[in-house]
């Protein structure tokens, strides 16, 4: 059987909100080392990869590896019934066709349980190699959210260029043009306000803004976001989820004709 308890249930709520617009359904794979998900959007342009480690949970038991086919809009409907301060326990028997979610209020005076129907989903897995990127940029998640929101109101695509001057986001559209440059900045006493640019070589890539904006639905999960860029490769937009794990979004670049 599978059983996992997380006392900070709001994290689970935020995770599902972060990915439900991007992917309709996917297999959450459970194993003794934790929970993971890899799912692409319907056009196979972007991919969500979620890793939650067993030791990040208050309790975690999984006797046997299994995929749990989840419809995320339905998962979200059930999670919306959990209070923000509730502890959430997930339970499933081996080869079950449902996932039980139990919500406990922080003073344990209210307990509710819901069953989510599971689906059988055929999914393609992509092999994503670990690699060194030409540029890695850490910035406040709120700053990333602001940039992609602002630029989406001007254009459809963004050229992201990382140089020793900083990281520049450029777009153009019917309204005109927009450029936002962030410089390396570690002057704040608060680490979450830092912008850290780790540049091995200059790189410039073009991406569809609507996906980058969609990734910012994960802003509530982490104070910082990391962007990783290499020529001719998908961008990685990564949020650390506390001690629990991370959620990564991959987006294929626009390719020159």
């Amino acid at each position: 059987m599978f059983e996992a308890k997380i006392s900070q249930g709001s994290v689970l709520k935020k995770l599902v909100e972060a990915l439900k617009e991007l992917v309709t359904e996917g297999n959450i794979d459970v194993s003794p080392s934790g929970m993971s998900l890899q799912a692409m959007d319907s056009s196979h342009v972007c991919l969500v990869s979620l890793v939650l480690r067993d030791d990040g949970f208050d309790h975690f038991r999984c006797d046997r590896n299994m995929p749990m086919g989840i419809h995320f809009a339905n998962f979200s409907k059930i999670l919306k019934c959990a209070g923000n301060d509730d502890a959430i326990t997930l339970k499933a028997e081996d080869n079950a066709d449902q996932l039980t979610l139990m919500f406990e209020s922080s003073n344990q005076d209210r307990i509710s349980d819901f069953d989510l129907k599971l689906m059988s989903i055929e999914s393609e897995h992509l092999g994503i190699p670990d690699q060194d990127y030409s540029a890695e940029i850490k910035m406040p998640a709120s700053e990333y959210q602001r940039i992609v929101r602002d630029l989406t109101s001007i254009g459809d695509t963004v050229l992201i260029s990382a140089t020793k001057e900083g990281i520049k986001f450029s777009t153009s559209g019917d309204v005109g043009t927009a450029n936002v440059t962030l410089r390396h900045n570690t002057t704040s006493e608060k680490q979450e306000e830092h912008t850290i640019i780790d540049l091995k070589e200059p790189v410039a890539l073009t991406f569809a803004l609507r996906y980058l904006k969609n990734f910012s639905n994960a802003t509530a999960l982490a104070p910082q976001v990391k962007l990783s860029l290499t020529k001719d490769l998908p961008i990685v937009v990564e949020y650390q989820v506390g001690e629990l794990g991370n959620i990564r979004f991959y987006l294929a670049p626009k390719i020159d004709d």
């Binding site: 692409m40 056009s43 196979h44 342009v45 972007c46 991919l47 393609e124 897995h125 992509l126 092999g127 994503i128 190699p129 459809d156 695509t157 073009t206 569809a208 001719d232 490769l233 998908p234 991959y250 294929a252 670049p253 626009k254 390719i255 020159d256 004709d257």
Partner: peptide, 14 residues
């Protein structure tokens, strides 16, 4: 502005 790439053209399908 270029053509939108698909992920399969960058990563191997397992």
């Amino acid at each position: 502005k270029g053509n939108q790439g698909r992920l399969e053209s960058f990563f191997s399908v397992l």
